[in-house]
Amino acid sequence: MALKGNLRDVGLNQLLNLIYLAHKTGALTVQNDSGSAGKARLYFKEGRLIHAALDGQEARLTDVLVKVGKLTPDQARAVRSRAKVDTDKELGLLMIQSGMLNQNDIIQGVKNYLLETVYQLFTWRGGQFRFEANELPPEERITVAVSLDHLIIEGSRRVQEWEHLRDELPDLDVPLRFSDRPDTNLRNINLSVEQWKVVSFINARNTIRQIANFLKVDEFQIRRIVYGLQTAGLVDVMPTAAPAARPVAPVVPAEPVGRGVLLRVIDRLRRI
């Protein structure tokens, strides 16, 4: 009998805890039904995570190593084209023999990818899941065993951060504006490139969600970036206007500014 349910009722952490304590072996499939849709499959062996695959994501060893920064896309292409082999194990062997990476690089790379994939699932708020006992990943995949206790702790931390950010910034369909609190101490602000990118899009016509879509960052990241800017005192969220359905237009340049506004700017500049 398969374990089935919805993440709304049994959280991912609870599930992992169960798998951990009961030393389960098998595959957990989750179909996200909140926010961006997606499907994930996690494989466990005797209570440890050994493999993860996200829907539609090509998770060949070379792709995985590119994602975690162990290989450049060019190197990956080179390996793939040279190799008449197709299993991950053969690909790995080829990279080791050619001196491109050592065994440890590969294991670390696969492991980091595995962790990042699972951390993403922690931001899913709902989704049908199903645990199929004794199902194992395809034979040719390279697996690494990750102990679930640390993962559960880190997962809980991320869930808390996520929930906190969602409370701080519940609505993404609002624009941002520059804070006009005159007392803000801007002197020691040190912003990341991501934060600067967001700052450069601030105007009354761009909602947070539009900015996120344009910059291709997910909801969690955009909340984190905007929250950082807010706590630095640099930006405010504009109070929600009338909840009229807003057409989701791409980010567009500001409307032409009228002469009246320009004359005010000129007048002021002359006097500074």
Partner: peptide, 19 residues
């Protein structure tokens, strides 16, 4: 200041009339 004003004059030339 001068440079910014000069730029504003160029902008003004191409600005639409206010309705």
């Amino acid at each position: 200041k001068e440079i910014l004003l000069e730029l504003l004059y160029v902008i003004l030339e191409s600005a639409p009339e206010d309705k």
